[in-house]
């Protein structure tokens, strides 16, 4: 059976969930071969094997952490030469898309980004994507070279399927461009203790209606009562009320949770682009004309400063 390369996204060997989703999708196309770059392969390999990796190609070198993107492209290119895969799957993170972009140009291959599903087709993998702020769903295929496909988080439920996961060192020769862009400092983002925005089953987002950073604890309390992640509109982020990493929308994260609660958010097209494929949508807004209400399964027209604290209490009471 053909092999399919999966680029592993990890933090010091802790494999991030989207990679497990990719391994799950890769099994539809062939035998997954994981490419693990950087330190921590010992921790990662058993996990990758459990989710179906027949082989785990590993390479570790300071270049992977000290320089931007290109060293990883060099490594993936080496893996492609070694394996001649039927496709290369890469998580759709900012870095993942850039790695995929350069790899595609090098291989002379077509590239599909931000797939939300991948299936096997007669003429190669078929990728499902959302277009135009999720108002269209498209199905596309790569027609030249080795298909390079980046896949969004939450595109499949990770399913364990134990395989050999044989660890094999990957020989990588870095090209002249590998050391072009130096990472001179790195500050890790502090964990909030809440679920990852793109992976959460429930997301509660606040917008300009919150009227100040000092009111975001209202959103956090509601989120915590539901075990949810916290999101924000760009207006709230631009005002400095919440970090950009929490922004939902076209220039932030795309989320597709079971439940999305929009609080004090009008529902501009760029915000909808990041949340309108959520299964259930709920909104609280004092303006009954707000476009967000066009999307909701349930909406409350009212003052968030009254509705949200009362809702949090009600949820806690019901859960108690």
């Amino acid at each position: 059976m053909a092999e399919v390369l999966v680029h592993v996204d990890h933090v010091d060997g802790a494999v991030r969930k989207p990679t497990l989703e990719l391994l799950t999708l890769a099994r539809r196309l062939g035998d997954p071969v994981a490419v693990f770059l950087g330190a921590g392969a010992d921790t990662a390999a058993p996990v990758l094997a459990e989710y179906g990796a027949v082989r785990v190609l590993t390479a570790d070198a300071p270049e992977f952490a000290d320089y931007l993107v290109v060293p990883k492209v060099d490594a993936l290119q080496a893996a492609v030469s070694l394996v001649s895969p039927a496709a290369v799957l890469v998580p759709s993170s900012a870095e993942g898309k850039e790695i995929a972009a350069r790899l595609a140009v090098r291989l002379g291959s077509g590239i599909i980004t931000d797939a939300v599903d991948v299936t096997a087709g007669d003429e190669g993998p078929v990728a499902t994507q959302s277009a135009f702020a999720a108002s269209f769903t498209t199905r596309s295929r790569v027609t030249r070279g080795t298909p390079v496909i980046t896949v969004k988080p939450n595109s499949a439920a990770p399913e364990a399927a134990p395989a050999a996961g044989t660890v094999e060192p990957l020989a990588v020769t870095f090209g002249a461009l590998a050391t072009g862009t130096r990472v001179t400092a790195r500050t890790a983002r502090e964990s909030t203790g809440r679920p990852e925005l793109t992976e959460a089953a429930i997301v509660v987002s606040g917008g300009r209606g919150l009227n100040g950073a000092e009111n975001f604890p209202l959103i956090e309390a509601l989120a915590d009562s539901l075990g949810a992640a916290v999101g924000a509109s760009r207006a709230a982020v631009d005002a400095g009320w919440y970090p950009h990493s929490a922004q939902v929308g076209q220039t932030g994260k795309t989320v597709s949770p079971q439940l999305y609660i929009a609080v004090g958010i009008s529902g501009a097209i760029q915000h909808r682009a990041g949340m309108q494929t959520s299964k259930t949508i709920v909104a609280v807004n004092k303006d009954e004309e707000a476009p967000i209400f066009e999307l909701v399964d349930f909406g409350v027209v009212g003052d968030l400063f009254e509705v949200v604290p009362a809702l949090t209490e009600e949820i806690k009471a019901r859960k108690a």
């Binding site: 595609a104 291959s109 269209f136 790569v142 027609t143 309108q276 999307l295 349930f298 909406g299 409350v300």
Partner: peptide
Amino acid sequence: WTTVEEAVERPARTKGEV
């Protein structure tokens, strides 16, 4: 190097209870 085989308009969400 890629081809779009199909583009389907997503049905508009039906507005629920407000």
